[in-house]
């Protein structure tokens, strides 16, 4: 019986790992998609959009399956609430990446060439922040002592992302030749990318509390 219980747990462990892989994958797809958009390669952008949509669906399915298992099999009763919240938060990060690409698809922002590198750098930092959050999540399940190291990196990437956002906004609003509506549109996209890093930081803050609760 203990063996069958263990097998079931190995199943859910795999699902959690796969789910976190999807979050990480969404970041990379989002980066590819935005790069393609900036290069004007709309075929590659459309492909990235399809891929990220599939990843989001798979991520949702995995999250639901994990949550159902958690409740149906009454697993980890003392941390169930925290783990559920964590999974929801990670799913929200995955959705943010998907949402960003969809906004590019719908709103088709006209990003001046001189801002391309800043946007790329900004997204890179947000993706790094999410990557570090994913690693801290994995540690939360496997090696609780290592969570703090990864959380530290999330904070670092979020700060870097803030710096780039400020710089980019200054540059956008420093341009006299752009209409205010255009400037505001560009700022909106800069903020959208930066928000991913902010959200990743919020998740890692909550994760810190879950760690303290588990240590008690």
């Amino acid at each position: 019986m203990a063996e069958s219980i263990l097998k079931k747990r190995i199943g859910i462990e795999k699902e959690v790992d796969e789910f976190l892989d999807k979050v990480s994958e969404a970041g990379l797809l989002c980066k590819n998609g935005m790069n393609s958009y900036l290069q004007g390669n709309m075929d590659a952008f459309a492909q990235a959009l399809t891929s990220i949509r599939n990843t989001e669906h798979k991520g949702d399915a995995l999250r639901r399956s994990i949550e159902q298992d958690l409740f149906r099999k009454t697993l980890i009763p003392e941390s169930r609430g925290d783990v559920m919240e964590l999974l929801e938060d990670m799913d929200a990060l995955l959705d943010r990446f998907t949402g960003l690409l969809w906004q590019f698809e719908i709103e088709r922002p006209d990003i001046c060439i001189e801002f391309h590198e800043d946007y790329k750098e900004l997204l890179l930092y947000s993706v790094e922040a999410v990557e570090a959050t994913v690693r801290s999540c994995r540690s939360f399940f496997k090696d609780i002592n290592a969570v703090a190291d990864h959380v530290h990196k999330v904070i670092f990437w979020e700060k870097e992302s803030d710096k780039v956002t400020t710089r980019l906004q200054r540059a956008i609003f420093g341009r006299q030749d752009l209409r205010l509506s255009h400037k505001m549109h560009l700022r909106f996209f800069a903020k959208q990318v930066d928000r991913i890093a902010d959200d990743a930081e919020d998740v890692s803050d909550r994760l810190n509390i879950y760690v303290i609760k588990r240590m008690l």
Partner: peptide, 21 residues
């Protein structure tokens, strides 16, 4: 447990089995 790095779900399974036995 601090040094054993057991996965949360595996620890849950082992604890549950231990409590049952």
């Amino acid at each position: 447990l601090q040094h054993a790095r057991i996965h949360m779900f595996r620890l849950d399974a082992l604890t549950r089995a231990g409590l049952l036995i």
